[in-house]
Amino acid sequence: MKTVTGLFDNYDDASDAVGELQASGVPHSDISIVASNSTEWYDDGDSSKAAEDAAGGAGFGAVIGGAGGLLTGLGIMAIPGVGPVVAAGWLAATAVGALGGAVVGGAAGGIVGALTDSGVPEEDANVYAEGVRRGGTLVTAKVDEDLVANAERILGQTKVNLDERRSEYQADGWTAFDADAENYTPDEIGRDGARDVNRI
């Protein structure tokens, strides 16, 4: 299996990519989505039950494993340096797992560690984590070799160009994702380029 990842400025584009991945044969259990919720675009309403189940030991895999698919299992959690996120899937479970299933919190650089453990180069994982911190949405899929080209095509349609985004961050003095950094405020996210913070 290979890990294929895409960073999106727009949650709707990321959600569409998840749907296309599922339609192409990638099981929802092999797909993850992690989106910034610093602007509180996502109302946790029913997700609080999912969060309680995950904290109680059911884990995100069980929470999202129902017939409704991946996106019906979105839950809110906080990741140090990233802030509040809306997440579902194996990446969220891995990032949270370091805390023994706690939903709020996460290991320092939890996204970076989870991505690098799945084969994503550390340099890229840092940009992905920073992208979520700055208001983006990350879609990650573990795919069989025969589905890699199609998954890369799907995630490449509207995703952020990682090299360009890295260069933009570095031009502002950024060197790597910092789990101890202050969370971005909604106003700061709004000033950080062409992000679509009105996600729904």
Rank of each mutant, 00 (worst) to 15 (best):
G75R: 09
S32K: 10
V4Q: 11
A179G: 07
V34R: 09
V120N: 05
L91H: 03
A55M: 13
D146E: 10
G119M: 15
P121V: 08
V26P: 00
E123C: 06
M77D: 03
D178I: 04
A171N: 12
T175F: 14
G100P: 11
S47D: 04
T158V: 04
D192N: 14
T94M: 04
R191G: 05
N10M: 08
D44F: 05
A194W: 15
E182C: 02
L115S: 00
G101F: 14
A67D: 08
P121M: 10
G190A: 15
S38V: 04
Q170R: 15
L21P: 05
V120T: 12
G73C: 03
D16A: 01
D180N: 13
P80M: 08
D146P: 01
G113N: 10
G75S: 09
D192I: 08
G25V: 04
G136Y: 08
T3W: 12
I76T: 07
K159F: 03
G135F: 02
G97L: 11
A51G: 09
K2M: 08
G65K: 08
G101M: 13
A50R: 13
Q22N: 09
V160I: 11
V127Q: 04
G61L: 12
T140W: 06
V18T: 01
R134E: 04
A141E: 08
A58D: 11
